[in-house]
Design a protein around this nucleic acid. Sequence first.
RNA 1: GCCGACGUAGCUCAAUCGGCAGAGCAACCGCCUUGUAAGUGGUAGGUUAUGGGUUCGAUUCCCAUCGUCGGCUCCA
Length: 615
Amino acid sequence: MSFYSRPSFGRECLFNYFGGRMIDKKAEYESSKLYRIRHSTAHIMAQAVLEKFPEGKVAIGPAIDDGFYYDFDLPRALTPEDLESIEKRMRGIIQSKVKFERKVVSADEAKKVFHDQPFKLELIAGLEEGKEDEDGNPILEKPEISLYSQGAFTDLCRGPHVDNSSEINPQAIKLLSVAGAYWRGDEKRPMLQRIYGTAWTTPDELKDYLWRMEEAKRRDHRKIGHDLDLFSIVEEVGAGLILWHPKGGKIRKLIENFWTQEHEANGYDFVFTPHIGKAQLWETSGHLGFYKENMYSPVDIEGQQYFLKPMNCPFHIHIYKSSLRSYRELPIRYAEEGTVYRYERSGVMHGLMRVRGFTQDDAHHFCRPDQMPGEIDFVLGFSLHILRSFGFKDIQAYLSTKPEKSVGNPEQWTAAEKALEDSLKREGIDYQVDKGGGAFYGPKIDLKVKDAIGREWQLSTIQFDFNLPERFDLNYIGEDGLPHRPYMVHRALLGSLERFFGVLIEHYAGAFPVWLSPIQATLIPIADRHIDYAYKVAGDLKKAGIRVNVDERPERMNAKIRDAQNQKIPYMLVIGDKEMENNEVALRLRNNENPGPMSVTAFIEQAKDDIEKKI
RNA sequence: GCCGACGUAGCUCAAUCGGCAGAGCAACCGCCUUGUAAGUGGUAGGUUAUGGGUUCGAUUCCCAUCGUCGGCUCCA
């Protein structure tokens, strides 16, 4: 999560340092056969759409990760039935083994070919000026204009494509959805209809992809959050505002407890700050200048304007400023789970992932220049430790460096970037460099984790700030008795607790590790005569610190097991006559394993061990 | 905010052409006393998101608002 500005992910400069080698992932994909298949399938789709709507206008249709899309301006809205018929026609075109032929033309010729295609004419004009490619991205050299034709359909395109549609497997393509999209991504320009599709080399790969989509749906934190009674968002309260239910609240508390304990053990001081602050504060910080569109309207308190906080930093800075600081005090690490409010447009909220009020696990480090590299080393290592504790083992780092427009002096930037990169190397984790992708106020490292089905989620961010120390005139008194400017670093490890919870839910599909499970064990008495014994066992487990409940409903054991399975409770302990007699419990696990009868003490040992190991 | 789809009981979903709003699960009250993924009978549950309009009559058709979903845009 970026504190101030864009997450900065320039598609031009995405390089991967891996085992000392620099890999350009984007170029690798674009030169692949799969890329050509997808791009060509997009053209075939455009052909099928134009056959159905001869008066339709075509915009652009690139290959993307996992598939392709094409944008159209059509006389009416597309229906799911349209997609079926278009897909069917596409298979027909593919099976007719059409050739893809490339032809280089002059701008004038191209204009003739596309005389009734206004979007293409606009693209040609752009190419002619040599400013933008067909995706609207700036390019350096004036390109040649090329056309690709397959049968009766011709498109303006840089390529490359397959040579013949027989290279596309008609059973390995599928149209997925239709959605609105602005021409050139500009909301002031016409809204087009975008058809998304996917294409693979074999039907098995397609099946696999569709299975991954299904799996993602099954893990959707909004559905699981409801099924497991973790949280809700209700219309009466407001969009993008989270209600944490007792079980979700329990998990949050467990996360926070762990977080607090680790921070306490690692030199952080805890601070608490209010939810609103005066307009002048946000003027000084600059937020009213460059962040205003994300802030809510002010509230009037006795004639003074106050704003809901979109960030915690100005408050932490004032705690720093509350007394004169000596170089001996540094580094200072202030941490707070600070709830912030940011305006989100109505169409963009998404469960826990994108909300209007959220709690950052925020901290600010203030340190001397000589401490700075060590401070970065520490915070990077600490981040990785925290993320790994929650079961995220696959972590990727992204280093963003100085953009063209920036504040602070170049030496600061160089030193900070070097410290970040050195730390990454020392940690030995893979990282990519987004050159020029940093915020104007400082370079940063973002950490992304891979979840159980391979999706990447950005959680941590570690950002230098050369801006706020200036604006708030932060100082410490050095050994020389003179005031010096400290380095300031923002960092959030989990990002926002809401979003982190959402990622956790999807990563584990609701089957949280035992240490995070709101209910760790449920006791299942088979008949009423076993209830007293169940409570006795429950007492023993509670004494051992295990969260336990007794399912004494007058239901069949089978029903209780089913419910416990659906609630993803880690340990089911069945209790009948045999167990009662031998002071045992019969253990069943949520993965359907059935270890069977064991003594209560043996179970407690196993459970404590699982909790300790965070599995 | 924009494009499209959608909003019926706590949940999942029905309701023909505009003609008495229904089922399963959950809840509640019973019966059954159970050995590894749903035992059984009954009861209750609704201003069909909200507000207007058309109509003899609206869950159904029209408009607006709120919200949800898929995207765009924005961004954490």
